[in-house]
């Protein structure tokens, strides 16, 4: 009897927590949890990257085993240095591109944010950043990396926010094809990033740049999105559809910038 009462007590407590958590005053608790998990997540990410590079190193050691031991050690050291330098260089290039983008656009302000977590559920295509409404972020702001649009802020809490990546099919972004000067709608799909609703009489060229459009006042105009990879619609269709490629690998992002108009 007592055990049953205790079980019902636990169920009631959980139900109460879930009920209370529906209100916005519970947001700081969720923010703290996200920030708390961000630290070990970052450690595990670095560890997995190190393990990956170590495997690369082990492979190269096996190849060099035919050479003498001194050369092998020197080469290993050099490879490790090169890998380290390459990482720094990549980071440097990425930040330089962000800086160039920021300097080139005086009409917008960029707020840097660190990627703290990636959603482990494939259907979501989201990531969490360590900035929120306390840092001036609002829903529907554009998120860029190296000057390219990568997504949109969808859920903004006090100290953390959720970014919906362009690959999320729930996200719709008006874009402009710079060569043909026509507009279209960008969305994520099974076929990758696609732009549809391009009028059939428009001549779209493979390789032409795609930038954001100010249609609907969603994002500032002119932010690079990618380039046209191929036209995937059939000739008889009313609108054309183009597949877009973005140079940004979203799964390896560590820093992003929020565009504040």
């Amino acid at each position: 009897m007592r055990r049953r009462r205790r079980q019902w007590g636990i169920v009631a407590a959980i139900a109460l927590i879930i009920l209370v958590a529906q209100f916005s005053f519970f947001n700081p608790v969720r923010d703290v949890a996200r920030r708390f998990v961000a630290a070990p997540t970052s450690v595990v990410r670095h560890l997995s990257q190190k393990i990956n590079s170590s495997f690369g190193l082990i492979r190269s050691v096996n190849d060099l085993a035919k050479e003498n031991a001194e050369l092998k050690a020197a080469l290993n050291q050099k490879e490790a240095d090169i890998a380290k330098l390459a990482t720094v260089q990549n980071e440097n290039t990425s930040l330089r591109q962000d800086l160039n983008f920021s300097q080139g656009r005086t009409d917008i302000k960029l707020i840097p944010a660190t990627v703290s977590e990636f959603s482990p559920f494939g259907n979501y295509q989201t990531l969490t950043i360590d900035k929120g409404s306390h840092d001036g972020l609002k829903e529907n702001m554009a998120v860029v990396s190296q000057g390219f649009l990568i997504g949109e802020l969808k859920n903004v809490s006090d100290a953390t926010s959720e970014v919906w990546l362009l690959t999320n099919s729930g996200l719709v972004v008006p874009v402009r094809l710079t060569g043909s000067q026509t507009t279209g709608i960008l969305k994520g799909s099974l076929r990758g990033l696609i732009v549809d609703n391009i009028p059939a009489d428009t001549s779209v060229t493979v390789g032409e740049a795609v930038v954001t459009s100010d249609l609907g006042n969603l994002f500032p105009a002119g932010i690079a999105v990618g380039k046209v990879e191929e036209i995937i619609s059939k000739k008889e269709e009313v609108f054309q559809t183009a597949r877009i490629s973005s140079p940004i690998n979203t799964s390896s992002l560590s820093t992003v910038f929020i565009v504040r108009p």
Binding site: V37, T41, S42, V44, R45, S48, E117, F118, S119, P120, F121, G122, Q125, L127, T128, L165, T167, T250, S251, S252
Partner: peptide, 9 residues
């Protein structure tokens, strides 16, 4: 939320 999240993405 770390390496597996990157892979899942």
């Amino acid at each position: 939320y770390g390496p597996l999240g990157e892979l899942t993405l």
